[in-house]
Nucleic acid binder design. Sequence first.
RNA 1: GGGCGCGUAGCUCAGCGGGAGAGCACUCGGUUUACACCCGAGCGGUCGCAGGUUCGACCCCUGCCGCGCCCACCA
Length: 870
Amino acid sequence: MTDTLPPRTAELPAQWTPGEVEAGLYERWVEAGYFTADPASEKPPFCIVIPPPNVTGSLHIGHAFEHTLIDVLCRRRRMQGYETLWLPGMDHASIAVHALVERALAAEGTSRRELGREAFIERTWAWKEEHGGAILAQMRRLGDSVDWTRERFTMDERSNRAVLTIFKRLFDDGLIYRAERMVNWSPEMRSVLSDVEVEHKEVDGELVSMRYGDGENAIVVATTRVETMLGDTAVAVHPGDERYAHLVGTEIELPLVGRMITIIADEHVDPAFGTGAVKVTPAHDPNDFEIGRRHGLPMPTIMDETGRIANTGTGFDGMDRFEARVKVREALAAQGRIVAEKRPYVHSVGHASRGRFEPIEPRLSLQWFVKVGPLAKAAGDAVRSGDVVVHPKELEPRWFDWVDDMHDWCISRQLWWGHRIPVWYGPDGEVVCTGPGEEPPAGYTQDEDVLDTWFSSGLWPFSTLGWPDATPDLEKFYPTSVLVTGYDILFFWVARMMMFGLYAMGERPFDTVALHGMVRDQSGKKMSKTVGNTVDPNVWMDDYGTDALRFALARVANPGTDGPIGEDNVASARNFGTKLWNVTRFALSHGASPALPLPARPTDADAWILGRLREVRDQVDALLEDYQFAKATEALYHFTWDEFCAWYVELAKPQLAADDATADGTRAVLGHALDALLRLLHPISPFITEALWTALTGGESIVVAEWPVAPGTPVDAAAAARVVDLQRLVTEVRRFRTEQRVPDSRRVAARLVGLDEAGLSGHRAAVAALVRLEAAGAGFTPTATLDVVLRGGPVHVELDTSGAIDVAAEQARLGRDLAAARKELDQSDKKLGNPKFVDKAPAEIVDGIRTRRAAAAADIERITARLAVL
RNA sequence: GGGCGCGUAGCUCAGCGGGAGAGCACUCGGUUUACACCCGAGCGGUCGCAGGUUCGACCCCUGCCGCGCCCACCA
């Protein structure tokens, strides 16, 4: 029959070499235009905006993880007939980039100040070219099905126009304002940071209690930041605190400085904490600032932008804040004013999360803010109304928690590179905001600060599509379909996009927010550079291939949950790829093809595997629709390995050796099943499936193949049940052989009694092949027997093991079986003996227990008899 | 202090009302014509603890113990 088969289009090498399979494939896909999205297409749109990775060196494992998930979604949708678009982008203006460039400069013995603005910007662009290019190359290597014709950067011209447009609108609507506020200051970056860029960490500090004033007016206050006492303008006590009632309104002298400060009463003070009295430094502590505002206190700033003490008129001026902390304490001690010191004192301190993790300094400063109230409310309502779905749902409270109580967003940064704030100041204090294309009046000077990088990133879902122009892309792809990102970025980025999307477009930026967890190391620990447990995905791609890396990552991706991954996972995924490769080689070498018609009268094995394939397809389909990557991947792994390879292929071997009709049917089933399986696996492991699928089908590319749909034929439950019985029988005989130490290679003469009655008449050859039995010839004398109870009935197996059997091993085996059967009988009896159970439990459950009881009883009888013979 | 979640086989994790599962690790056997990156068989768990609901609980409820993450202005 071989001559009627379609020609094979490719010879598969005997060995799967990921590097060779991947070589040039991605470029071919791009060239074929598979990834290019056409806004004029009639197909339904599916659009994903991708988080802009910082240009911080390389695409780390977290990016590889996220990109894999996004690409799985995109590739599946493309196969389903959607016009898909996923936009790549880069973020070049963040604090992190500045910090890195700054660090590189420091290594060269220079600094941003020495270099000057122009040279610094040039230097940063060079950084972008180098590292941005590297990251994009890695995205290609990962197989990201990106539309490269729309490659986007946050700093390109279109992005600039979008930023100017929205800034102007917000400004004109009164949603952007400039004010002197308490901000998070990074002395290292010499810039303000937004609240979310500050990470609070417990540190071992000190709590110093010191005495202000003398004699009857003395009052003791405690602080973890002694140096700030230089900027104190009051001491506060609780209004109801009788201990201090007589002091409220009086003045005492501030030690070291000599200034007179007032004792005030404020509700904020907790009378139960410490002495119940608090020093107030309005310009260097958020709470103190509020107290200062309530009481109209002076607010002297006593630190410069680099964190050095300044303008106190004391000898501490010029000292670094940490040095001053020690020196001020010593000076106070010399005056006998230190009452108590607690060290270490564990308390929470804010650190710059995107820079060098320096402690941030609360500082009073003039900055630009977005009035977030109406924007944040809309962002919350969008999720409340179900307009935008947060997945998994458990993370919704976090969203509301944040959005419903959001502080105004500080958007100005004292960096040199980024989108410049489009506000100009006139000679007489005029303030003008310019929109795109607008020129400021002559003689005006522009604000020096640049915008927070999340300001432009927040426009991503529509700026990348051409906004503010009404482009076809925008028309077709907005709102985007799903945002895939880590839960850690919810507040940074997702919140900004929601606010801006709803404000600028009047419509949600995406239908679904699918949140994934973080990749952890193989023992479940958080990856961190300082711990040194980070992994480079490139190394794993080198060693195991991209398909293996993607498969391993998808396999641990449970929604909103962190997944541990180690080299073992990737090796296991590589092994899976090898398995897939080899089984396809087997199929091809036996003439399997999906072009062959499925048999009109399939064998039990054929019907079973096609039925299982259909169930697995439905399952995988539903799981991916629900962003359950790990479960979908796991289902495919087990179906492929434990069912298709381990059972179907083994059953197919005797079928291929049978009559022509059976053999051809088997070739068709092998071909159809493998074809569908490869297509189901393609979104997860694109390269290997492409190589195997084109070899199997001769098709153009699996990238544009159809996602498998459920066939109309019903699942043959009876055939499936017979296969399950067959598996049981085979496993039992194998177990017996192993325990009797019959070498796997030796064929054993055997007689199977009851096979026909059990409904397995057609499977005699299959059983013989799978357990290496041969037909009992003349003079057959069984030396061992074995009973296996199947759903279809009992089967008695007689074997000639050519020698005495190992009675001890057989007794041990039967003993274990007997114990299991007795336990089963006991449990069943207990249940059935309970009238309430029989009464209240559903009939099918009770019937099930009855059947199990009967089976157990029969087992006990059989095993006991067998043991007696032994 | 508030929110979310987790404690299941040596390790990492699925399962979440009716017969305890997977991967890796481990033990034993294997040159069967796709595959040793493999095949076959096996060992291994009072499902954190204590109550409750139920005919029935790893699964639902309550409390406790241990752990993680996020948020919050504790000097």
